[in-house]
């Protein structure tokens, strides 16, 4: 796959917490419809990088962003950018499943209503479709009004994915989506991520190299240098894993470091 049609593009992007940089100078083009994995050791700024793409960085305390992010024609950090509309285009899944303490139905309904879907029948159709997409419909269709907190960890994570997909985002960000789950649930969620290929532009942060190898089309490798995370190498997954250009990458994917 050639990186000819980037949907998300960062330019000299950096983020600081107070005076401490989390990552610096990251210029990365994320191709449309592909799965891009961001890998690297913990503390190299992967998650902070993800938070810049949907401007969730706004909510992080004492945080300052430099450089730029573009999604299609939208300058993400332009002061005139409508953040609410932006976050609708960019869905996000967190490491720890975070369903709201509401019923399963309300979890999906709340964002749909907020984004202007008024008709109940229309909403119900979307709820059924997205829950089916994440393989949850069979499991929960008879208890949609039960609390979402009663679901297992894997089910909760799939509900969160359904909640994000219900808004028909263009980009889906996943921040270590499997690391808080047991191996079986982890496998189910991983298969789901693969099924997003082509329909959505996916950026997944993971420290699980085997997982990145299994699911990614492209890989970006972060590493800490001089006290800040930096993008060391990025490219086609086969190339980064099979024939890394940088010796740090080679050491990391070879299992020698990190």
């Amino acid at each position: 796959m050639k990186n000819a049609h980037p949907l998300v593009q960062t330019e000299a992007l950096g983020l600081h917490y107070g005076r401490k940089p989390a990552f610096l100078d990251v210029s990365l083009a994320v191709p449309r419809g592909a799965i891009t994995a961001v890998i690297g050791p913990s503390g190299c700024g992967k998650s902070s990088f993800l938070a810049c793409i949907n401007r969730l960085s706004d909510l992080l305390p004492r945080c300052r962003v430099e450089g730029s992010v573009r999604i299609g024609e939208t300058e993400v950090f332009d002061p005139g950018t409508d953040v609410v509309a932006l976050r609708r285009r960019v869905g996000m899944i967190f490491q720890k499943p975070n369903p709201f303490p509401l019923s399963i139905r309300r979890n999906l309904e709340l964002p749909l209503k907020e984004h202007g879907m008024r008709g109940r029948a229309e909403r119900d159709a979307v709820i059924e479709r997205t829950l089916t997409d994440v393989g949850l419909w069979q499991e929960v269709h008879d208890r949609l009004d039960a609390s979402a907190l009663g679901l297992s960890g894997g089910q909760q994570q799939r509900l969160c994915l359904a909640r994000a997909l219900a808004l028909e985002p263009e980009v889906v960000l996943l921040d270590e989506p499997c690391s808080a789950l047991d191996p079986i649930s982890s496998g189910v969620v991983e298969d789901l991520i693969v099924s997003l290929r082509g329909r959505y532009t996916v950026v997944v942060v993971t420290h699980n190299l085997a997982q990145a190898r299994r699911i990614a089309d492209r890989v970006a490798f972060f590493w800490v240098q001089d006290g800040a995370g930096r993008l060391i190498e990025e490219g086609e997954a086969d190339q980064v894993f099979g024939d890394p250009r940088d010796e740090l990458t080679a050491a990391y994917v070879g299992g020698a470091r990190g």
Binding site: G80, D82, A85, R88, E114, H115
Partner: peptide
């Protein structure tokens, strides 16, 4: 089409 062009109602 459904996406608001300028600043949204919520904003």
């Amino acid at each position: 089409a459904r996406r608001p062009s300028g600043r949204s109602r919520q904003w």
